[in-house]
């Protein structure tokens, strides 16, 4: 349990540094396909969080029992089971959402985020850390999805969560068509890279200045503003 990485960082890394959608480019299919309205984005995000938490927890619990040769097959069955639970629950409780997400709920099975986290994290870490990792990754996915979906819904339909924002404005339908999905995500990725690059540059500049000011005594970590560590 006493890793070098604090619990808070375990969660936070999924939101920006290792954001599954914007940085790792995982799970692109649902990201592009269902983000035609903000509510779809939120629903898909929540479904993925649920599956991710359950499968990460389950896999990290059974990781010592499953022989290495069949681990992928076993993981896939575990993931598919939780996905089916989500699918059936949504059909039973939220039929409208379920029909607008269509086949993309069962397709969570092949969302690379989930198998990726199972293989890269849950199979090597304890249950508590695996759940934290799942929460962070799931939240990062949900936030990116909701952002992309809101943008597309506002531009393509003139609404946000179904509420009309600009009654007198003819929306650009192309934004909620497939082409708009590619274009919006491409520009968002460009924006994220831009932010990161200027961040990097200013961090490097701050580092240089700090070390100059302290005449070489400052620790690089302090100048870079390492986030305070805390236990969740």
């Amino acid at each position: 349990m006493k890793g070098q990485v604090s619990a808070r960082q375990e969660v936070l890394k999924g939101l920006w540094d290792q954001n599954p959608t914007l940085r790792q480019l995982l799970g692109m299919c649902p990201t592009l396909a269902i983000t035609t309205s903000a509510i779809n984005g939120v629903a898909m995000g929540l479904a993925v969080i649920f599956v991710l938490i359950c499968s990460n927890l389950m896999i990290s619990l059974v990781r010592r029992l499953v022989p290495n040769q069949v681990r992928i097959a076993a993981y896939i069955v575990i993931i598919a089971t939780f996905v089916t639970v989500v699918d059936l629950t949504m059909k039973a409780r939220f039929p409208e959402l379920s029909s607008s997400l269509g086949a993309f709920i069962p397709l969570i099975v092949v969302n690379c985020i989930i198998l990726g986290r199972a293989e890269a994290f849950a199979s090597k870490n304890g249950p508590w850390r695996s759940v934290l990792d799942a929460v962070g990754m799931g939240a990062g996915f949900t936030v990116s999805l909701t952002f992309l979906a809101s943008l597309r819904e506002i531009l393509g339909n003139g609404t946000l969560f179904g509420v009309t924002l600009f009654p007198a404005w003819e929306p650009w339908v192309v934004m909620i068509l497939p082409a708009g999905g590619f274009l919006t995500l491409g520009l968002i990725l460009g924006g994220v890279n831009l932010i990161n690059r200027s961040h990097e540059a200013s961090r490097r500049r701050a580092l240089v200045e700090a070390s100059r000011a302290a005449a070489g005594f400052a620790l690089p970590g302090a100048a870079a503003g390492t986030p305070a560590r805390g236990e969740a």
Partner: peptide
């Protein structure tokens, strides 16, 4: 044996959920 066990647990739990949801 591992795969069969995983499959059986998965199938059994899904049939419970399905019984409630269907």
């Amino acid at each position: 044996a591992t795969l069969v066990a995983v499959g059986l647990v998965a199938g059994a739990s899904l049939s419970l959920v399905n019984g409630w949801a269907q």
